[in-house]
Amino acid sequence: MAKARLVGDRTNKVMVQAMERRSTDVRGRVFQISLLVTLLVSLFILAVLIVDVVMDGWGILTGRPGGFLGGTMRSLSDDPKLGVHQALVGTFWIAVFVAVLAFPIGIGAAIWLEEYAPKNRFTRFIELNIRNLAGVPSIVYGLLGLFLFVNHLEGVTGGKSIASAGITLAILVLPIVVITAQEAIRAVPQGLKEGAYGVGATKWTMIRSQVLPYAAPGILTGTLLSMSRGIGEAAPLLLVGAVSGRLGRDSGFFDFGDINADAFMAMPVIIVEWVQNSGRDPGFAEAAAAAIVVLLVFVILMNATAIFLRNHFENKRG
């Protein structure tokens, strides 16, 4: 049975040639490789950064890890009592403020926007407003904190206190909490909600029993990301008055009385402080690197957990 020819001889020859030729798409290869290179450069930078910091801080971290975590701010870098304890306490309290203020308010706002808000101009305004807040530079939040919490509300916050810093950072991460929680809630399948209504649930019962459990991993991812942002932020803290120089007091983690005591320290700020000190005393660069490693351990752990959680649930739900 002779095959019917679709095209003429000439065309047939060209097509056969085109299909049989081992195609070497040089431009395509070069393009792909250069793309890969750009990506690898970014990863290489990350690797250099981590290796550089860990190498600089290695001496302190392996030499006297306990002393470094339990020590305080000192004038000289070779002082055996030099350490980050005050900064850890400050950062711990900032994290508490973020968790207690930003999480409930942010998640509440996200629930309202996704489930209750009427589709009108005002709702769109609120959403635009939240997106804009997320893009406001962190130092502007520092100005807000300086103006409002340090100067105008000194009677409540104690001025340049951990309370002022904590509230400022809670405000700073609030829009991130709202936006990530909104995305998580938006992903809840309509069918789940309708099922709940079908068995007579009220709106809140439906949200509580269907929406929140389904969105929980997504919301948790968002809160972890915003927490890691919060504990790594330095600029607003410099404005609301983290001390430079000496902090005489070394409170324990649960000294509630010191929350609004004047002056405090936090992990990102102690790094800045020590980097600046390294101009007159080069040993402080190592202390700063060691403090960075301590901070990075927390931040990367939180981020990695968040990313893992998100990917895990994304895959599970297809």
Partner: peptide, 26 residues
Amino acid sequence: RRTLKPVLEILAGIPSVVLGFFALKW
């Protein structure tokens, strides 16, 4: 993609003080 993307996201989470140290010292 599944391996590279998270690494990029970790880079996104690095606090700016850390990059400040890196910019100044490296």
